[in-house]
């Protein structure tokens, strides 16, 4: 289920914690599993739990609590837009609307070609860069005016 490359990365995370506290690596391990698979299936969560020697339900509790884990398949690119108040004042909500129009989908939907899933997100801690969005939980894009959004969409092919 988990590739040897993923397991190697998980081992590096386990090493950060005391020897009897492997469970501490579960957040990182789930993120690594999600990166490998594109989303977190029950099988992936169970594999992580077994590798860390914890109950699968405990790993599932973590996976379902933190909102950057995707428990259902998403598009090749997941685009999360912050619409919280500070961003809203500087166009975060408008950016969300602009993306919905451009992509022809609503929040929590995926384009028919499976390319892009659009998500509304909470504060990313980058309010000074509003409008802000994140691609696949990893790449933060700042000052996303219409022109910048068009450029990003052209790049995500």
């Amino acid at each position: 289920m988990l590739t040897s490359e993923s397991l190697k990365r998980i081992d590096r995370e386990i090493a950060k914690y005391p020897a009897d506290q492997k469970q501490s690596a579960v957040m990182a391990a789930l993120a690594i599993a999600q990166e490998q698979q594109g989303w977190l299936s029950s099988e992936a969560i169970e594999a992580v739990a077994n590798y860390l020697g914890m109950a699968p339900i405990a790993a599932y509790e973590v996976a379902s609590f933190y909102n950057m884990y995707d428990l259902k398949p998403v598009g090749k690119y997941k685009l999360s837009v912050c619409t919280n108040l500070p961003c809203m004042l500087t166009g975060g909500v408008d950016a969300g609307e602009y993306l919905k129009r451009k992509l022809g989908i609503g929040f929590n939907e995926t384009t028919p070609d499976g390319l892009i899933t659009l998500k509304e997100s909470e504060c990313m801690g980058a309010c000074g860069d509003a409008p802000v969005m994140i691609v696949n939980n990893r790449r933060m894009c700042s000052w996303m005016n219409p022109e910048q959004i068009d450029k990003l969409l052209a790049e995500l092919k």
């Binding site: 950060k16 914690y17 957040m27 909102n67």
Partner: peptide, 9 residues
Amino acid sequence: FAHHGYGAY
């Protein structure tokens, strides 16, 4: 060590 969160205020 650094611990990376995953989205929970």
